[in-house]
Amino acid sequence: MSAPLRLVVFDVDGTLVDSQADILAAMAHAFERADHPLPARDTVLGIVGLSLDVAMTRLAPELDAARHGRMVDWYKEAYIALRAEAGAAQSSPLYPGALEAIEALHGVPEILLGVATGKSRRGLDKLLEAHDLRRYFVTQQVSDHHPSKPHPAMLQAALSETGVSAADAVMIGDTSFDMEMARAAGMAGIGVSWGYHPRTSLRDAVRVIDDFTELPACLNLLWETAE
């Protein structure tokens, strides 16, 4: 009997790449342009993964929708400039072991890979191109086409595109939004401890790993338990 088709979906910022320096700098630019106090570093990193419009509303709830929209534009303006100056590969470097984990999973015939990210299509394209990752991911879900995490739309689309059942899929991410999204989609969620949310916030994860080398055994255990 052949093994069932599996789907592994990765978050991007805080999971595959560390883009916090540019995120913090771009957010500082947006708040400076808005003449509004910048929230604390941990507060800013706590919204990573959300779509920018939702993130701005959470970070500056006292401002109106028009100003939030301008702040999104200012953020994008600064982020694009920072990425252009350093190059996306240097601006958002891969975490140690990320590429090796992707390559190893890609080499397993019954495993398909995807991404679900709060990035825009343009932002994800730049990142995948910079790290030469596009060929690995058969499904790519971005903020342009879906409600913000933790709404399950991204994962539902990934399941639909690949034909994989939720029981045979897993979401890997660093934030509570990723884990809540997985739960809402009926999928298991594996948290990673090296990202932008504290380990304690990943309560919806079936497991939390501290290094990419732990991922294969974690997936094997998860799927063996499900069978």
Rank of each mutant, 00 (worst) to 15 (best):
V164S: 11
D53N: 07
L202F: 03
L24D: 04
L159C: 04
M56Y: 05
I172W: 00
L63K: 12
A78C: 15
L202W: 02
A153Q: 14
V170I: 04
D144Q: 13
T200M: 12
V48F: 04
A34I: 04
F31K: 11
L112F: 07
G49E: 05
P96I: 01
I47Q: 11
A101M: 05
A217S: 12
V192F: 01
P39G: 08
A130E: 03
A55M: 13
Y75A: 13
F177N: 09
V142C: 14
A153N: 12
Y196W: 03
I23D: 08
D64Y: 01
F31V: 07
V138A: 11
I190V: 13
R207P: 00
L113D: 11
T15C: 12
A34E: 13
H131D: 03
A55D: 03
A101I: 00
L45N: 05
D53K: 06
D53W: 05
S120Q: 07
Y196H: 09
T225L: 10
A104Y: 00
V208H: 04
A130N: 13
F212L: 06
W194L: 03
E100K: 04
D168Q: 14
L45T: 04
L24H: 09
V108K: 11
M154T: 01
D144H: 10
P4S: 15
T117F: 00
V206S: 09
Y75I: 01
D144K: 08
S176G: 05
